[in-house]
Amino acid sequence: MQTGQSQKYLLEARELIIGYPQRTISGPLNLHISQGDGLGIIGANGSGKSTLLRTILGHLMPVAGEVRFLGLPVNEDSLSFRQLVAVQVTDGTFFEELTVAEHLELVARGHKLSSWKSLVAEELEFFELHLVADLLPHELSSGQRRKLLLAASLIRPAQLLILDEPEQRLDLRIKAKLYDRLATLRKSGTTVLAVTHDPQLLRHSLGQALLLNEDHGELIEAAVGAQWLER
């Protein structure tokens, strides 16, 4: 795939100011994330955590500065960006006519995975969704819908995995399995970026934390970030 001149970092944010034309939320931020890094984004409500994720994904224009992925400006229209970046948003919507299994089939086949049937089965098993595999989204509980969103972000290949509060509405067992899996993914080279309020996720699966304050971001160790969350 085509990359920029300097491909030292997987993801870079340079003098990034996030927000809306009428209202700046946070920044300037500078981030340099390499392959296999794990970064938790933490902060108080309204500090711009989800806005930062949306800006990194290219869903929102930065107020100033830029975000680069593999040395090139973030462009969600580029095929390689869509191939390499997996996302789980907070409250996703669903196709009302597709079942749980078909949603996963859509993602797996969309990413051209030849053994999609076994991959879907594995994800259903992992997230304990196999008993509801043939149900439609409106027949699921909010926790099950949440698990479907996470399964969809994990079933596909990715170099960068972006998660928005993955711990929400999950039971403790699934949380523990998920955190283990994220740690394993990082070891095998996948970069994980997650907005979180869970100190356990920071400690177990992520190496660093970006603490968003009113007007800037501070990069701290995961353990320190976990302590901040526990305060």
Partner: peptide
């Protein structure tokens, strides 16, 4: 490029273009 970490040997690419429609 990593998938889920469950069974990475299974990852291979299909030839034909999939149409979600």
């Amino acid at each position: 490029m990593e998938r889920s970490g469950l069974n990475d040997n299974d990852v291979s690419v299909q030839e034909s273009e999939f149409d979600p429609q």
